[in-house]
Design a protein around this nucleic acid. Structure first.
Length: 834
DNA sequence: CGGCCCCGCGTTTTT
DNA sequence: CGCGGGGCCG
């Protein structure tokens, strides 16, 4: 402690002479006297060096919680104070959230000058560059950005049009194949010529992928659209084929800073290298941690950080190894797991904080019990530590795990917020709204046209749509362009039905009005004139959530206008945002970016989504083999190591307290599966664990017995009346059902009991046969030849029994000929022996 | 042409 | 279990 203080002091003295000149200089620039010292204050010696030496290429290896954002933001602030023009700095992050946080922190250090800083995600910055420069590549500046959903839909359509089976060519797989190629800058032509890729496809019996890729590219281009990967690919092509454009940006961005460098893929890496190489290339400063590389599945290359100094031999290396975030217990425990990885840079993360509490390990029989235990533990923690709900996070490997947790939290009246999973922008009504706007902004976007030409229903069906497409093909333009080019005199116009003409008039009307309206007014017009708002109103209660979502979208337009006027992207740029800008911004947003309403809530998210965040108390759930580590990583050492890094990321989110849990059975696809505890639990140095169950306790209880008991427990708990509604809240946003505490007063609104007035909640709860079956004997293990009765199909004979992992498959020949022979799962069939 | 019903499939992780 | 797509009927 004292050593470090001394070190700091010496360092400060050394710095002083270096910075004296700048202080005087800076004071001349009307800076607050204290600012310089403030920026170098509160940095440890290594951090300080990384900030001061901003004029050198730098590789900063920053362990979890070691203050990497701090270094980045201080480096930016310091540079600006040293007189580096704001416009010559480019800072890149992976997520909007990280970008926003960085901007806030830079802003806090140097004030409003930060507003002209180019700071954003790779994708948003590159989209911006392409908006300015895309012409060179044949794109108009109003190009559409397809998110993965839209791109997958288009790929699916192409597969169908090519008469390929979507069994062998699953759009999802084809998309990931194309994405992989694009990440590595392999064009469709190059793909076709690439023996290795084509060979792999052959082996998988999918030899036509390159052709799908070709057509997909052609379609995107014709629609003036780019997918996420294209944003990177096209900037590469731009910089490769147009040296003058590259020179322009290289001259402009004298300094580049990159966050989470370990997650860059080849395309991103090459763009950075292009800008940073050569005489007068940008000074590149990258920050990352190989131990937190968790995105190789989407093309990230850890090698980029491992080999950075080969690419930039004069780079200075800084290692930030002290973790300021977590207790020693957490840091040491995390290290003990990551030590099992062979593939890593030597870096010793350490903490000088308290030892803190041990890491609790909980065992549950079922996933729902696990959720309940976590909910109770959250209550206990929050109460004993006196912290707010928002200091707690529950992290899981897959989004699917959130459901059980949500239910438990709601049941325990714990406020929560879920990130990820189905995002706001995935809702149909939002996509519909966006499709209208996309079509108006970009008339080449046929996908948008086809999506909304008959929504809300206006009598323009498949046949008519087919004719319109033919019309467009004949003219060699998009559908809307073809329609818009027709005059009332042209013979083709006369062949159109009245309904199509009305649609043309509608879109023209909205389109014409956009110049003299604010963003919000325009959005409102789209919502009303399209008929979307009306259709949702007519849908009654079913449409209420959707309607609220549309309203929220409109609000976000106002919000965007407000932000934009505070934050012009460029000096001299108009502050009134255009619809194009809004649309491109929205295309790059995710659920993570929705701002919270300020209420303190427990955070639920995947481990991936939690990277870069920190919480006082963290629960990591579902620590089971084949879940975490995931089934798909098993058997592949590299992927297993990535899972281990993922676990490392999860554990190092915790500042003070971490709890790990696993269940012994888990519902999967409507089936109960048995699980074994994760290997990561065994790899953890046991000294740091507080195991809250008896490991010697008999684990080998008769599985059937346990299953039966769980089953009755489950049906009992589901009778509590918490219906299947997952998302409360009118907006459809995923805020948890939370009642402000009202002492012991009854809560009239929720949870809703099942009453006959609410028949929907009765759906599928409990046995359909009800008490009528009580007379018969429950049948646990049916045998061939048994005479049984089924609630719906009546009596019959068991003709076949096949044991499954966790259940029995029973085939019954029913007496009733209309029921015939049926194969049933014993667990659900509720057969009774006669 | 639209609405309804049934079937089949999905679970890694995300800009 | 829940959603989306496809098929069938009105």
């Amino acid at each position: 402690m004292t050593k470090i203080q001394l070190f700091l002091r010496l360092n400060r003295i050394k710095n002083f002479s270096d910075t004296l000149f700048h202080r005087i200089f800076v004071q001349d620039m009307k800076m607050e006297n204290e600012t310089v010292s403030k920026i170098l204050d509160n940095l440890n010696p290594e951090q300080c060096r990384a900030v001061e030496n901003y004029d050198h290429t730098a590789l900063i290896i920053a362990g979890a919680g070691s203050g990497k954002t701090r270094v980045l933001t201080h480096r930016i602030a310091y540079m600006i104070e040293q007189g580096v023009p704001v416009r010559s700095i480019l800072a890149l992050t992976f997520t909007n959230k990280a970008a926003r946080e960085m901007r806030e922190r830079v802003d806090a250090l140097i004030g409003e000058r930060s507003r002209y800083l180019w700071l954003g995600t790779f994708h948003s910055i590159f989209a911006k560059i392409l908006r300015f420069e895309g012409k060179a590549l044949g794109y108009a500046d109003n190009f559409t950005i397809y998110d993965q959903e839209q791109s997958r839909t288009l790929i699916g359509k192409i597969i169908k049009e090519m008469n390929l089976s979507d069994e062998t060519y699953k759009p999802r797989d084809v998309q990931s194949r194309i994405s992989l190629a694009k990440n590595n800058l392999i064009t469709s032509a190059a793909y076709e010529a690439n023996a290795s890729l084509v060979g792999q496809d052959r082996e998988q019996r999918r030899p036509h992928i390159f052709e799908i890729y070709k057509r997909y590219d052609a379609r995107c281009r014709a629609a003036n659209a780019m997918d996420f990967d294209d944003l990177l690919v096209n900037v590469n092509i731009l910089f490769r084929d147009f040296p003058e454009v590259l020179a322009k940006y290289r001259d402009r961005f004298k300094y580049m800073l990159v966050d989470e460098y370990q997650d860059t893929n080849y395309a991103q890496y090459l763009i950075l290298r292009r800008l940073a190489s050569g005489e007068g290339g940008s000074r590149l400063c990258v920050v990352g941690d190989d131990a937190q590389s968790i995105y190789s599945f989407r093309g990230a290359k850890v090698e980029n950080i491992l080999l950075f100094r080969n690419d930039f031999p004069d780079a200075r290396l800084y290692k930030l190894e002290r973790n300021y975030r977590s207790t020693q217990t957490i840091v040491n425990a995390a290290n003990s797991v990551i030590d099992n990885n062979k593939h890593k840079i030597g870096k010793q993360s350490y903490s000088e904080n308290d030892f803190g509490e041990k890491i609790a390990v909980l065992r549950a029989y079922t996933d729902s019990e696990e959720a309940q235990m976590v909910a109770s533990a959250i209550r206990t923690s929050v109460r004993s530590a006196g912290i707010g709900w928002d200091k707690v996070a529950v992290l899981y490997r897959t989004n699917a795990q959130s459901r059980a947790l949500e239910e438990a939290l709601r049941r325990n009246n714990i406020p929560y917020r879920i990130y990820g999973g189905r995002s706001f922008y995935d809702h149909k009504e939002i996509r519909d709204m966006l499709a209208y706007i996309r079509l108006i902004v970009n008339p080449k976007d046929d996908e948008a046209f086809l999506r909304i030409v008959n929504y809300p229903a206006r009598g323009i069906g498949d046949v008519t749509q087919g004719r319109l497409r033919t019309l467009a093909t004949e003219h060699g333009v998009s559908i809307w362009e073809a329609l818009a080019s027709l005059t009332p005199e042209s013979p083709e116009w006369k062949t159109l039905g009245a309904k199509v003409k009305e649609f043309v008039a509608l879109i023209s009307e909205i389109s014409l009005s956009r110049t003299d309206k604010s963003l919000y007014e325009f959005g409102l017009m789209v919502a009303t004139r399209s008929g979307i708002l009306n259709a949702l109103t007519l849908a009654g209660p079913d449409g209420a959530d959707a309607k609220a979502n549309v309203e929220e979208l409109l609000n976000s337009m106002q919000e965007f206008t407000k932000e934009k006027s505070q934050l012009p992207a460029e000096e001299g740029e108009p502050t009134e945002p255009t619809i194009e800008e809004w649309l491109q911004n929205v295309a790059l947003l995710t659920d993570m970016d929705k701002e919270s309403d300020g209420a303190a809530r427990v955070t639920l998210m995947t481990v991936h989504a939690s990277k870069g965040l920190e919480f006082d108390t963290v629960f990591i759930v579902g620590l089971e083999e084949q879940l975490f580590p995931s089934l798909k990583s098993m058997g592949d050492e590299a992927q297993l190591e990535e899972e281990r890094r993922l676990f490392y990321v999860a554990l190092t989110r915790a500042e003070r307290q971490a709890t790990l849990s696993f269940a012994q059975t888990r519902y999967k696809w409507g089936n109960t599966e048995f699980c074994r505890p994760s290997r990561f639990l065994k790899e953890l140095d046991q000294r740091y664990l507080d195991i809250r169950f008896d490991p010697d306790e008999d684990n080998e209880e008769n599985p059937l017995e346990r299953l039966r008991r769980q089953h009755s427990e489950n049906s009992r708990s589901s009778e509590g009346g918490y219906g299947a509604r997952r998302y409360g809240g009118a907006s459809g946003s995923r805020y948890g059902g939370y009642q402000p505490k009202q002492a012991a007063k009854p809560q009239p609104e929720r949870p809703r009991p099942i009453t006959p007035a609410n028949p929907a909640s009765l759906r599928k709860i409990g046995s359909p046969s009800g008490s009528a079956a009580a007379a018969a004997v429950p049948l646990d293990a049916p045998k061939v030849g048994d005479r049984v009765i089924h609630a719906k199909f009546g009596p019959g004979n068991v003709v076949e029994v096949e044991p499954l992992a966790t259940d029995l498959k029973v085939t019954v020949e029913f007496d009733n000929p209309s029921a015939g022979k049926k194969t049933l799962l014993n667990k659900f069939a509720k057969l009774q022996r006669l």
